[in-house]
Design a protein around this nucleic acid. Structure first.
Lengths: 207, 207
DNA sequence: TTTGGCCTACTGGTAAACCAGTATTTTTGC
DNA sequence: GCAAAAATACTGGTTTACCAGTAGGCCAAA
């Protein structure tokens, strides 16, 4: 029987080598290629047509999310396992929406990695134990709110410690406008002061 | 000539295997052991007496910083290279103070890793290019401020979105006391409002 | 015993954020 | 072109944070 062809996309040599080393003893898995950037990964997937793609979310050029979306559309038979250090529901849900079939943390045990590959190859979804724990344990948290361009600007300025008047001067609008944006931000984040706003924005990686 | 004996301490299988794979082609380096926790790392270092220790900062039991301090005191000939994903001056300075001879990011190229090992083995300090860039580029930022126990409590409460009066009620002190703590926090962080306070605290992992 | 750090607390403010409801204009997407 | 969303702006507030200087009590270390 032909082994599962796996392509590794990760910008860190250490991770690429580590993954190859962990997968090497598995007879039913063959690492057919590695790529260090999103662009390389796209090209390699198109050329090599692997069965399973181990895809780092955090790539230096094209985001893993974009790579995932693109390849899910182009190569429907390709199973994508997202690799990351982030055990956050936000990232899990985004990658799943982008078409990933699995989500594995980089701290995963070798057995988890092997299971992820075989499961997604068999057409199933796979979440590592830590991720399952996260999904089951906490209520479905809303994703980061959808912010308008202006709201993002104002959020960034608030996070830089500027007063509303200062922000208004910089953006050439009225203080009252900034206060409105500010209030809309609080509402969208479901909080009622700046401390919580900034904390959540920081935790969501919006800053 | 005897190769440089290297011990790897990292809780992630992927990283351990990756490091072994990257070091394996180097004739002048011999990986004499691996450990997955701080405690295992301490024991292995004491037993194996390696020349160079590749030490993950972020370990599940004893922090890499503590391991570093302990081994620097016990085994003065041991050269410790800190490994991390964090390119923050805060971590660099702390590990250096704890006795590390080198600091390498986990995204380091294999050549950087090799250079780190040979340099520290030769008694020099080693900073990977990225870290050098960080050290040269920015003025010496203060480390995370030293907070009193009370200040930490008040910081946490502020970050939870509580008003000063609410915090005062909970801690059974006067509002004026909380405002004093609050002001001391702003002063210690060198900021002048809550937005910056929370942002910095979040970025420093204090929340 | 002395000193320094921490904790608590005050006077006397001003600046800024938060709140709720409302409305018009501009921009965007279909 | 039209509807919806975004941006801008207002009234009329109240609440809260920020600012600066100051001081006493307690406790641990020197």
């Amino acid at each position: 029987m032909s082994p599962i062809h796996v392509l590794i996309v990760d910008d860190h040599a250490m991770v690429r080598e580590g993954l190859k080393a962990l997968l090497q003893p598995l007879e039913y898995v063959a690492v057919v290629g590695v790529a260090a950037t999103g662009a390389e990964g796209l090209a390699a997937a198109r050329q090599l047509r692997p069965d399973v793609l181990l895809l780092d979310i955090n790539l230096p050029d094209i985001s893993g999310l974009d790579v995932c979306q693109t390849l899910s559309a182009e190569l429907p038979n390709l199973k994508i396992v997202a690799l990351t250090t982030f055990n956050e529901k936000l990232y899990v849900t985004r990658m799943m929406q982008a078409g990933a079939a699995g989500y594995v943390l980089k701290n995963a045990l070798p057995e988890e990695l092997a299971e992820a590959i075989t499961k997604v190859y068999a057409g199933k979804k796979y979440f590592s134990d830590d991720v399952q724990h996260l999904l089951l344990e906490t209520p479905t948290a809303p994703a980061a709110p959808l912010l308008t361009r202006r709201e993002k600007e104002v959020l960034a300025a608030i996070a830089d410690g500027h007063t509303s008047q200062h922000i208004a001067d910089n953006l050439h609008v009225s203080l009252l406008t900034i206060e409105t944006h500010r209030r809309n931000l609080l509402t969208k984040f479901g909080v009622n002061n700046t401390a919580l706003l900034i904390r959540q924005a920081a935790q969501l990686g919006l800053l």
